[in-house]
Nucleic acid binder design. Structure first.
Lengths: 243, 243
DNA sequence: TTTAGCATTTTGGCATTCCAAAACTCCAAT
DNA sequence: ATTGGAGTTTTGGAATGCCAAAATGCTAAA
C-alpha cells in the first residue's frame, strides 16, 4: 500500500537487454531442443540425467528443470518409472497434432488479415517466391527452412501471443516429422500451388479465404506426412529398429 | 538390439493404477493450480519459494519444478529478476486467449461429430438440460461448473489428445476470468440459446454447424468477459488496488 | 519531507548429497 | 537355450547448503 518501487522496466543502459538474464535452465532447454531436432538425441532415446548434465557441463538441478519444460512441450516423455526419453510419437499422434496445428494456422491467417502490414505481406510473399524459385536448386533443408519461416511469419502477423506461443510448441513437436515428410519430392507441385493460394488470399486480406487456404494446406500436410512416414516405417521394419 | 524388457504395460495387480507413482512435483503442481483457481494465491501475488515450500511441507526442489510446469501453463510468471508470481493477465491477453480457445473448441466440435457416441451426446445434452433447468435455482458456481463440464465433454469427444491437452491448459489459464464473467447474470438468455444450438448441431452430428455454434458461443464469451472485467476493473479503480 | 546510499535480509540459481527403486549382471537350475 | 533370482549398479526424487543478486530497512544529508 505504500512502498512500491515499480520502476521495473527502465532502460538498463544496455540496449535491447531488458530480459531476465539467461539461466542455465533456459540455455539447457534451448540446447536440448536443438539436440533433439538435429537427432543428436534420437527419438526414443533414453536419457541419463547425470550423463546429459555432464555433457552440458551443468548439474542435474537445472537439467531436470529443462527436461520438465521439454516435457511440457511434448519433446520429452517420462516412462512409468520416471525415466526420461526423447518423445517418439506414433504416426496417429503426429496426425492428431497436425490437425490441431491446422486449426491454429487457420486462425492465425484469419486474424492476420485484420492487421497485417504491407511489409509483412511482402515478407511472406518473398518467402514464397524464394521457395518457388529455388524449388530445383535449394537443398531439402533450405526449402524446408523457408517453408517454416513462411508459416512462422503468418502466425506472427496474427499478433496473438498465446496463439504464437502454442503454435511454436506444436511446431517443435512436429518438426522432425514434417522435415522427413518434406524430403519426399512428390506432391511438390501441389504444395507450391497451395502456397500461392495462401499468399494470394493474404494479399487480398481475405480472412475467410486465407483461413481456408491454410487449413487446406495443413490437411495436405497430414496426407503427405502420413504417406512419407508409412513408407519410412516400412523401410525401417526391415532393420531391427528399436522403438 | 538384444536386451529389451518391453513388457512395460502389464497389469500391475492393482486395478487402474498403471500410472507413474505420484511425485511431490505433481502433487505440488496440482495443489498450486487449486490454490490459484480458488484465489488462495491471488493473481499478481509474489511467491516466496521457501515459504510456499514450507506451507506445502516439501523442499524447494520439487516446488521449483512444479512452478516451472505452472509457468508453462501460463499460471505463473517470472519477473525480470526471476521472482515468481501468480499470473495476472490483462484484459486484452484474456481476450486473445479466448479467441484461441474458440478455435480449439470449434475444432473439437467438428472432430467430435465424426466419432461421438450416442451416449456421449446424451451426456452433453444432460449437462445442457441441467443448466437450463437450474438456471434460477443453481448457485453461480454450480452453473459455472456445469457449463465447464459440458464444454469439457465435447472436447473429450474429439478423441484428439493434443487438442484435449491444449484445451485443458487454456481452460486453466482462463478459469478465473470466465468464472468472474459468469457471475454476471446478463446475457444469460443468449448463452442458453447458444448452448441449445450447440447441442442441436451435435445431435445431428453436423460438423460444420457444431463448429460454427461453438465458435459463435466463444465469440460471445469474449464480449461478455470483456464487459464483465471492464466493470470489475472500474470498481476496483475506486479502491487503492495494487496490481 | 525527500532522497541518496549503505548495511542487512531475503531471494532464486545451482551444486552436492543421500536414498529408495529400478535396471542390469551373472550364474545356477531346469 | 531359457528361466529365476540374488547381488550389484544405475537411476531419478528430494533435501540441503552455499552464493550472488535483488529487495528491504535504516540513517543521514539536503
Amino acid at each position: 500500500m505504500s512502498k512500491k518501487t515499480d520502476i521495473t522496466d527502465l532502460d538498463t543502459g544496455e540496449l535491447a537487454l531488458a530480459r531476465p538474464r539467461a539461466t542455465l535452465v533456459e540455455v539447457a532447454a534451448d540446447k536440448l531442443r536443438e539436440l533433439i531436432l538435429l537427432e543428436k538425441l534420437p527419438a526414443g532415446a533414453h536419457i541419463s540425467e547425470r550423463d546429459l548434465a555432464a555433457a552440458l557441463g551443468i548439474s542435474r538441478t537445472p537439467l531436470t528443470r529443462a527436461l520438465t519444460i521439454l516435457e511440457q512441450d511434448g519433446l520429452i516423455e517420462y516412462s512409468v518409472t520416471r525415466r526420461p526419453q526423447v518423445a517418439n510419437p506414433r504416426l496417429d499422434e503426429i496426425e492428431q497434432n497436425l490437425i490441431v496445428m491446422g486449426a491454429l494456422e487457420a486462425l492465425a491467417g484469419e486474424l492476420a488479415c485484420a492487421c497485417i502490414t504491407d511489409a509483412e505481406i511482402e515478407q511472406v510473399a518473398e518467402y514464397q517466391r524464394q521457395i518457388e524459385a529455388g524449388d530445383s536448386t535449394l537443398s531439402p533443408l533450405e526449402s524446408f527452412r523457408l517453408d517454416m519461416q513462411m508459416h512462422e511469419a503468418i502466425v506472427q502477423a496474427s499478433r496473438n501471443a498465446p496463439l504464437i506461443d502454442t503454435h511454436l510448441k506444436f511446431n517443435a513437436r512436429l518438426w522432425r516429422a514434417r522435415f522427413q515428410s518434406s524430403q519426399r519430392r512428390s506432391g511438390r507441385g501441389q504444395t507450391l500451388a497451395e502456397h500461392r493460394a495462401i499468399v494470394d488470399a493474404l494479399t487480398r486480406r481475405d480472412a475467410k479465404a486465407t483461413s481456408e487456404a491454410l487449413r487446406h494446406h495443413l490437411a495436405s500436410a497430414v496426407t503427405n506426412t502420413k504417406k512419407a512416414l508409412q513408407e519410412d516405417g516400412k523401410a525401417k521394419d526391415r532393420n531391427t529398429e528399436t522403438e
